[in-house]
Design a protein around this nucleic acid. Sequence first.
DNA 1: CCGACTTAGTTGTACAGTGCAACTTACTTA
DNA 2: TAAGTAAGTTGCACTGTACAACTAAGTCGG
Lengths: 244, 244
Amino acid sequence: MAQKDQAQGTENSGQLDFPRPLATVDVVIFAIRNEGLHVLLVQRPAGAGEPFPLAFALPGGFVDVAKDRDLEACAVRKLKEKTGVTSPYLEQLGSWGSAGRDPRGWSATHAYFALMPEEAGRAALAPDAQWFPVVAGKIKPKLAFDHGEILTAAVERLRNKVEYTSLPAYLMPAEFTLPDLQRVYEIVLDRPLEKSAFRTRILSADMIEPIAKMRRGPNRPAQLYRLKKGREPVYFVRTFNPPE
Amino acid sequence: MAQKDQAQGTENSGQLDFPRPLATVDVVIFAIRNEGLHVLLVQRPAGAGEPFPLAFALPGGFVDVAKDRDLEACAVRKLKEKTGVTSPYLEQLGSWGSAGRDPRGWSATHAYFALMPEEAGRAALAPDAQWFPVVAGKIKPKLAFDHGEILTAAVERLRNKVEYTSLPAYLMPAEFTLPDLQRVYEIVLDRPLEKSAFRTRILSADMIEPIAKMRRGPNRPAQLYRLKKGREPVYFVRTFNPPE
DNA sequence: CCGACTTAGTTGTACAGTGCAACTTACTTA
DNA sequence: TAAGTAAGTTGCACTGTACAACTAAGTCGG
C-alpha cells in the first residue's frame, strides 16, 4: 500500500519527494535444447559506468513509466527487446530488492519465469543473447547482480511445479509423442519416471489430444499429440513418485 | 536486471535520471478468530491529498531506502509500525505494478503473505488497525487501491497451499489438539476432512510432537501437541480429498 | 526373407494412502 | 449409573502408483 511517507519524517500529506528505489524487471526463460535444460541470457554492455561489464545477465531492464502499462507488459517488452523471443508461458517468480544488489543504488527487480519450446528459440535471436545449459541448477559463468540467486530460485520453482503440474507442456513443440513429453519431465526432474503411471496420468488429465499422424522412426511408430488449445496448466493431486 | 536505460532514449551509460515508479510493500496477514478466517487491515488517514481517505487497506507503505536493508525487512517493519503485530510466517505473494493503481503515479507494490495465531493478535493492536472476517474470499468494505485484488490472490494462495502443506500450523497457538488443527484446515478449505486420514497424514509428517498434557473438557480429553521447533513447512505428496 | 534389435504401448500384481463408516474409549452431567 | 459427546481406532473398498513382464510395430543386417 502506498501511504503518506512517515518514513521520511515528513507528515505532510501527499509528500512524494523522497528517494525512490530503482525498479526493474527480469525474465528467466527456459527451454529444452539437446536433451538438457537451458536458460537464455544476454551479455551486458561494456560502456563506462556500466555495472558488471560483459558479464551475462537475465534479460530485463528498467520499468518505463511511459511505455509500460503494468509489470507483465514490461516483462514481455523486455524479453522481446533484449532477446528477440516471445514466450507462451509467463508467470511471476518473485521480487528481489535490497540496498546492495545494484551498485547504482537501492533497487528492486520484479522477476518473471517463462517457458518456451526449442523450435521457437531457433528464430532470430538478438546478437548478444545466448542459450546456456543449466547444470545442477547452476550456470557456468557467474552472473551479473544477484541473477545467479534468481536463477536458482527459478530452477527450484520449475522443479517443484513440474512435480505436480503440466508445465512441461509449454516446453514442447506443436506436435509431440508421450515418450517425448515424459523425457522432458525426466530432464527437468533429473530422475526416471514410471512409463505406465505417467501415461495414465497425462491421458486422464484431458490436456492433450491425439492427431491423425504417427511419429515414424527406426522402430515402432508413436502416436503424435498436440496441446488442447486454451488449456490452463493442469494441477495433479499427487506428485510423481516422490524422491525418497 | 538493472541496465542502462534504453527506454528513455538516452544511450549514455550509467544515466539514471528518468522517472522511477513508486515502490511500496504491503502485507496480507491472516489469523483464525472465532472459527473464521480474518485479515488485519488499517484505516487510511484523511489528510488533504491522501488517496482513498478513511478507506481500509492492507498494512504497508513506501520502501525507505535509508531504513530498509531489503524488501522483507521493509515488510516486517511496516507490519510492526502499522499494526503492532509480528508474524511467525512471512512469504512473498507477488507484485502488483501499473500506471493506474495509485492516483499519485506509476507504482509497484511488493506484496507479502503472513500467518499468525490468534493469541498473538490480542496484544497491543495499533489504534487504526482492525481484524476483518474473510467471507467467500472477500472482505465487506471495499479496499483502497487494488488491495481487494491482492487479498483475493492471498486467499487463493492460502487455500491452495493448505491443500498440500502444513501451513495452518502457523495459525495455531503454542499448544493445540489434532481436532483443533483439523478444524483450522476445514475453516480455510471450507469443507470437511476425513478424521482418520487427517490424523495419519499429520502424525506421519513429523511436524508436531505430543506434550505431557491433555486438553480436558466435557468429554474425552484430547492429547495436546506443539510444533517441533525449527520445522520448515511440510509439503505433502498428495492433496487432501480433492474437491470433486 | 528372417531374426535380432529397439522403442511404443499394455497388462498384471503388490502396495500405500484415502473415503467411508462403524466402533471403542474416556470423560461430564443429570 | 445411564446418557451424551467428542477423541481416537479399526476394517474394508477403492484409486492410483511401483515394479516388472509382456505384446506390438517398425528398422536393419545378414
